[in-house]
Amino acid sequence: MIVFVRFNSSHGFPVEVDSDTSIFQLKEVVAKRQGVPADQLRVIFAGKELRNDWTVQNCDLDQQSIVHIVQRPWRKGQEMNATGGDDPRNAAGGCEREPQSLTRVDLSSSVLPGDSVGLAVILHTDSRKDSPPAGSPAGRSIYNSFYVYCKGPCQRVQPGKLRVQCSTCRQATLTLTQGPSCWDDVLIPNRMSGECQSPHCPGTSAEFFFKCGAHPTSDKETSVALHLIATNSRNITCITCTDVRSPVLVFQCNSRHVICLDCFHLYCVTRLNDRQFVHDPQLGYSLPCVAGCPNSLIKELHHFRILGEEQYNRYQQYGAEECVLQMGGVLCPRPGCGAGLLPEPDQRKVTCEGGNGLGCGFAFCRECKEAYHEGECSAVFEASGTTTQAYRVDERAAEQARWEAASKETIKKTTKPCPRCHVPVEKNGGCMHMKCPQPQCRLEWCWNCGCEWNRVCMGDHWFDV
């Protein structure tokens, strides 16, 4: 396979590697080409510095992935760790964990309700045991953590790749202090920090972006993250068709209702045909949960890209028209025109101005929308079919299609509260000796007794199943 190397943020060049090629071997190839010592090179990928003893497969490097290699003399205490030698983080029983690669970060837990604080980093599902597709590297999971809308060759929703760059020099040479644990960490600028490894760059702020994971991409090709779309790892039924499908869209209502993408497309087109989208002054033209839940309008309007190009163009047109109407304007009634106009409040005669090729020149009556006339309008008909009709959803289907309910059931079956801080902690095999993952707590306690870890627990039921 081919990976592209950008040395000291210059133009990239291809390097041929195998899945079992080590990072140090990659350094040696680059060092020979650039005429520099291999031990002064640092390989940066997806916000993480890659260790010498890791392989291309370990690092989730795919065909035509772009890695950054910078030349920086080692500072005291760094060289041993980078070589894969006596790194205290690798000691058996050590409590410190390697910062998780962005290629394996899962933010789907952050669609849980606000009262489930902490689960994004504490609760991990076991539903990723799908067998890898044919042709994928051994052991590589097909679980997708992110979804994007690819405006490039795909023109559809695709699995996405999370990447990070330095907000100062805009190069992907920043190593994160810690990985993101929720969508806010990724979507809110300057929320996460790190250290830029580019020479002479003092940058410390992280800037995240997404790429389409279905095809090789260049540095400049980015895609918009659709953070309401998630892999259906909890096997929730769709609120409309009641099938279990994946991926799904999880509405931001209190129940976190789930809808499959085909039904979401149908829901949007139906509402669009009836012009029953909601115009929100802050958000724009949007839709609420299909069950009509309060405070559930979709905030990231790129989710409506699921409509496809033709329907999305209609959505944008109707949204612009609705904006004009909300501002007190009118639409030209001549067939084939429909231009938005903003006449004076007491102006009865409205002319669709033909300047700049935008208007048709038609003069019409503001009251009856017919060709302009003197005197009273002959008839004014009330528009028919403008009443909002509820999208029919079966109550039982709505009850079963809740992301929140599956989460709470998982928590109930696989977790116990920490005796000190009461945060839910998952036990997935292993011994009875637990350690609270909350940095402010870190209590060592017994899963069996529910009390602080002691010699009695150690001698009596340390390794009970």
Rank of each mutant, 00 (worst) to 15 (best):
S193W: 10
F209W: 09
Y312P: 02
R275Q: 02
N254Q: 14
F277W: 10
P180N: 00
H433A: 06
N273Y: 05
K161W: 06
S384Q: 08
A92I: 13
Q438S: 04
I142A: 12
S110W: 04
D87V: 12
R89M: 14
G93P: 12
A401F: 02
L325E: 04
E309M: 11
Y147D: 01
Y267A: 03
P113F: 07
A46D: 10
D18M: 10
R156Q: 14
V290Y: 06
Y372M: 10
L107W: 10
A390W: 08
R396M: 11
N58S: 13
E321K: 05
W453R: 01
T388V: 14
V393W: 06
Q165N: 10
P419E: 03
K32W: 10
G35N: 12
H302C: 10
P159S: 06
N58D: 15
R396I: 11
L341Y: 07
T222N: 11
V278D: 08
R275D: 00
R170M: 08
V393G: 05
Q158N: 09
V456L: 15
R348C: 06
G340H: 05
K32P: 00
T388L: 13
N81A: 14
K27N: 01
P180G: 00
L41F: 04
L41Y: 02
H279G: 08
Q78T: 12
R455Q: 15
C457P: 01
L301T: 13
S141I: 09
E79T: 13
V17F: 02
L112I: 13
F364V: 03
E49M: 02
L228D: 04
G35L: 05
T83G: 12
G338A: 08
A82S: 11
C449I: 01
P88Y: 06
S255C: 07
A291K: 11
Y143H: 08
F364H: 05
P133M: 11
L107C: 15
C212Y: 02
R140H: 10
C263L: 00
A214Q: 09
R89I: 13
A82F: 11
G203D: 02
F7K: 02
G213H: 06
R420D: 13
A91Q: 11
V393I: 13
W74M: 12
Y143C: 09
R75I: 13
T83V: 14
T21F: 06
R51D: 10
G160E: 00
R402A: 07
T173N: 11
K32V: 13
E452F: 15
K435C: 06
